[in-house]
Amino acid sequence: MLIEIKSLTKKYNSFVAADHINLSIKSGEIFGLLGPNGAGKTTTLMMLSTLLKPTTGTAIVNGFDIIKEPSQVRKSIGMVFQEPSSDELLTGYENLKLHTMMFGVPANLREQRIKEGLELVGLTAEKNQLVKKYSGGMRRRLELARGLSHHPKIIFLDEPTLGLDPNAREQIWAYIKKLVKKENVTIIITTHYMDEADRLCDRIAIIDRGKIVAIDSPENLKRKIGGDIIQLKFKGERNLNSLKKLKFVKKIDKFENGAALTVSDASKHLQEILKVIGTVESVEMRTPTLNDVFLHYTGKEYHQNGESPEGGFFEKAMTYRARSK
């Protein structure tokens, strides 16, 4: 195991940001930490990269203990932060050079590594521009190249496509995939985008409120739900209890003005379900998505908020209220 996380916990007063997290990550996989904002993904990553001290528990990264051998751990990893962390008054090239020098890349290899990195992320032509002239996507790509330039065994990507437009996101995904193919690296990625996790990751850990609620490949997670999803919209109260008697209905999640049912062989049984529930406004039938997986394990609708990493004030106020209920 390349990374072994043992009961890793971070507490801020009474708030538990990461709650006894246990994980093993194999060499060569793209592993995703998926969860809504404030679930504890970044906190976990910060502890693994030794920037934050765990309250209890520890982790072994590339054979080194994050508490006892932080410097060795930092040598083994490359980190791409959620927030841009390159120097705006330096050029792309200078940022990379600074990085290779700080990370102890031998002088005779530096130019080669910088060149490779720039080529990989397609910034060779812009290497002598100041970073403040870069777009958000270019900057993220530069930081991706930077995180690789000392050839770490493990790369941590914290929300790599946060705040990027769809085009730039596709590009970043392509670069990440190219990277895994070319270098033999292990990637840990945090994201609150379901589609990102689905498309990139070999395995996913779903985190909610500091706890891991499920770990598996995206396919298996979806399969484990045990059927398709039938989403019903209707007005007023319906007697959902009668649905529970049907043995092909695995699970019922009730919302305001509707419900989501997990049903085996859904297409075959749709008729019967509608007979029991009566007239509805609309019916949607689909194979499960990670969204449904999240709902399945946490009992909550997944709300993603791409606007800001912390969530806006309103969202914070709402989660605060939800928590105190």
């Binding site: 990269s49 030794t50 920037l51 410097s71 060795q72 930092r74 040598k75 990893i77 980190m79 932060f81 927030e83 841009p84 962390s85 390159s86 120097d87 705006e88 990085h99 700080m102 990370f103 102890g104 930077r146």
Partner: peptide
């Protein structure tokens, strides 16, 4: 503020 410090601190340098 620019988070550049994180990049420096995450390096193996003492």
């Amino acid at each position: 503020r620019l988070d550049f410090l994180k990049e420096v601190i995450v390096s193996p340098l003492s």
